[in-house]
Every structure is written in C-alpha cells, then in structure tokens.
Design a protein around this nucleic acid. Sequence first.
DNA 1: CTGATTTATTAGCCTCGACTAACAATGTTG
DNA 2: CAACATTGTTAGTCGAGGCTAATAAATCAG
Lengths: 148, 148
Amino acid sequence: MTRSDDTDETKRQAERFRRVRDAHQSEVAEDYVEMIADLIAQTGEARVVDLSGRLGVTNATVTNTIQRLQRDGLVVSRPYRSIFLTAKGYDLATAARLRHHIVRDFLCSLGVDRETAESDAEGIEHHVSEATLDAFRQHLDLMRKRRA
Amino acid sequence: MTRSDDTDETKRQAERFRRVRDAHQSEVAEDYVEMIADLIAQTGEARVVDLSGRLGVTNATVTNTIQRLQRDGLVVSRPYRSIFLTAKGYDLATAARLRHHIVRDFLCSLGVDRETAESDAEGIEHHVSEATLDAFRQHLDLMRKRRA
DNA sequence: CTGATTTATTAGCCTCGACTAACAATGTTG
DNA sequence: CAACATTGTTAGTCGAGGCTAATAAATCAG
C-alpha cells in the first residue's frame, strides 16, 4: 500500500468535485438561455445590450459568450441582429427556469426574504440534483397543503 | 428613455449575478482550505497527493493552486514539504466546514440520501447567504425537537 | 547506501470568461 | 438625409484553473 491509498470514500469525494466542476461548465450557458427566453417572452426579443445590463457584464463579454453558445448549438444570431434560441437552447432554458423557480420558491417557503431567495437561487440552482429538487418540490407541496 | 432602460429590477438582477461570480472566485480556495484542515485533523498532514486524489485533479494542478493560495495568504508550504494553514486559512476552513455541514445535514433532513446530500452540498455551500443558512439551521432545530 | 518508487515541481499549453479600446453598424432625430 | 447616439463586434489582454510531459526531490526497500 502506498502512502496515499485510494479508498472508496476518496474516489467518491473526487467524483463529487468533478460533478461540481462539470456544473460550472454549463452554468453560464444556462443563465444565458434562461435569460434570453425570458427576454423574448417579456419584450419580444433578446439583444446584447439587454443581456449585458441584466448580467452585469460588458457588451463585449456577451457577444463573445453568444458566439460560444452558437458554436454549441444553443442559440442562433446574425451580426447586429437579435438573438434566438434553437430547439436545444429552448429546452435547456425551460428546464433551467423550472429548477430556478422551484429553488427560489423553496427558499421563500423557509422564510427567506424574496430578494435573498432570488439571489441565492441564482447560485444554487446549478448544483441541485434531481433527488434534491424532488425533496424541494415535496416540501413545497406540504407547505401548500398545510396552508389550505 | 433609451431602448434598454436600467430599471431597478435590472440592476438588482445584475447585482445577483455579480455575487454569484464573486462566490466562484472563492470556491476553490474554500474547498482547498477545508480539505487541508480535514486532512491535518485526520492524518496529521496535508500533502499534494492527498489533495489531488480527493479533488480528482492532477498533482500539477494542486501545486499550482497551492501557490495561488500561498500568494493570497491562506496557506504556507515549502517545496516538497507538506502544506499548512495560516490563521486566515484556518478561519476560512472552519467557516467553510460549518456551512458545509449545515447544508449537508439540512438536505439529509429533507429526506435526500446521504451521498446525494454530500454531493449537492459541495456545490451549494458556496452560494448560501447567512440568511438562508439561518433558515436551514432553524429547520434543522425544528426537526430535532420534533423527533425528541 | 544505493537504486527504485513515489511524490512534487516546472514548463508549456488550453479554454473560459472577464476586461478595455477602437471601430462598425444601426437607429433616431433635427 | 446627415449628424449623433446607441448598440454590436473585433482585437488584444488577463487570471483562473485545468491538462501533459519532463524533471527533480524525497522516501523506501533491499
């Protein structure tokens, strides 16, 4: 046995960290498509300046990121035109929004104030597994029934 | 009014995203110091190979990161020697571990299985505000009393 | 105590996601 | 419709955080 043995727990731990790193990879993509979907729903179109304002980054950063998203088949955009979602992008946006709302509502149901819930949900949503999301949903249902 | 008006909500949203980005900045640091503290507590010392095994990255990556942490005053390490925490690093580790455990235990208390709770907590812990952490604590207390 | 094994470091590379500054296209308005 | 304001893109830079390959140091076994 070498000094640093690879126990099962060590491997599981490594796997957990790998998952967190993977989640980080998709975070930006999810945030963008979710916001693009919301913008289209609310204002009819999504433009670079809208995204940069809401994300708190520069136009240049958004243009850059949009190009990556286009490369990855999530959005379509022609130069100087507004941004559209592909079917794939739309699906991702829908899933992201659903998760986002569940996390936010769940935090609210614990008594966390709205703005904090909104803020924390933004970070948390990308790290919530299906199992945990189910638990959140169940808790929400419980609270709703209790109030009824 | 220009096309893309900066409403209050837009500004708040931008602020939320900024906070998430800030949290990302400290994530790696927190994960490292927490793990270093645990290793020292459990095995007497923290070495590069221990960290790389548990984090699921290469030795080179760990060495690199440790240099950054040293630059930031969180750890002390001499070449080919094991790694120590500064007072600042120790404090950060302690705070991180506390949060980590609350998040994990909270998820468990919702009925999420241990391994999933452990895994999700790893990602979630960095995005939980004090207010939300308090809500988690309260919920945990409630569950404990209910069982008693 | 020397040779083999393990561990750590260095060098060089990559992508992502941020920035600024300069420039190009679009849109608005006098 | 021409000038100006707004928006979008490009080019170039940076740090974080990954990687591999080569090398160096430390440790262990015989």
